[in-house]
Amino acid sequence: MLRKGLLQTVLWMVALLQLFPLIWLINYSFLKSGEFFGSGILKWPQTPEWNNYISAFTYGSVPKYLWNSAFITIAAILAAAVLSLMLGYAFTRMEWRLRGVFMAVIMLGMIVPIHATLLPNFILFDWIKLLDNPLALILPYIAFSLPISTLIISGFMETIPRSIEESAVMDGCSVYGVIFRILMPMTKPALATVCIMNFISWWNEFIMANTFLTSETFKTLPFSIMKFAGQYSSNYGAQFAVMTMIALPTVIMYLLFTEQMSRGITAGAVKG
């Protein structure tokens, strides 16, 4: 009983530690800029400063940027999911020469830092007139998602018995049929994991967006924060309001899919 109580308190403390930044974030989004950084850590305002949200929606163009962010992120994670599923199939099920080499080359992508690709990509996109275009973000996002996604999905696929596919082939299923009608439903947990992981990494990506986008039309959510940054001091309240709205989808995704995620990651981990 005592041990259980101890465990409970420890868990509650961990939970509070995790929740605190979120509470902080929401709390600050209701403060006036002048009330920040005072003596108290949390400061509940007398009257919530809804103006922060109003200016985030109007001057900060949150709705437009939200749509851009959603479009770019979803396009990237869907493409990455499909491609990594196909790659996973090619690497685990198909027998071909240089398979190991290609797998290794794809995995090597994991060690490439984003910053090292900024300049070459900028020159390349400038060349093929892709600057200031959603594709300039979607393509690198897909590329950076592929290594880890392929790793997770092929790890998961190893756990699926081949006999299922064999019986499908006997019933006259094509290769694509095997991938999308047999394997895809079975790898759902892994696919969900991959999608959520990629969503989290690209949802508020800034450095590439900052480099490749120039016009207002395609800017993503993080630009909205910057709109409130003055040369010296900033409109912190509105920035926190924007950040709250950026964090919201991520938090919701987490709440909905935590189970899926942990299942997806661990499922492929044990079998080699």
């Binding site: 396009a75 275009n133 039309t217 395609f218």
Partner: peptide
């Protein structure tokens, strides 16, 4: 994406 890039030249500035 291709469509929107076509419009881009036209409205980027006014936006």
């Amino acid at each position: 994406a291709a469509c929107s890039s076509g419009n881009n030249g036209g409205n980027a500035g006014t936006e």
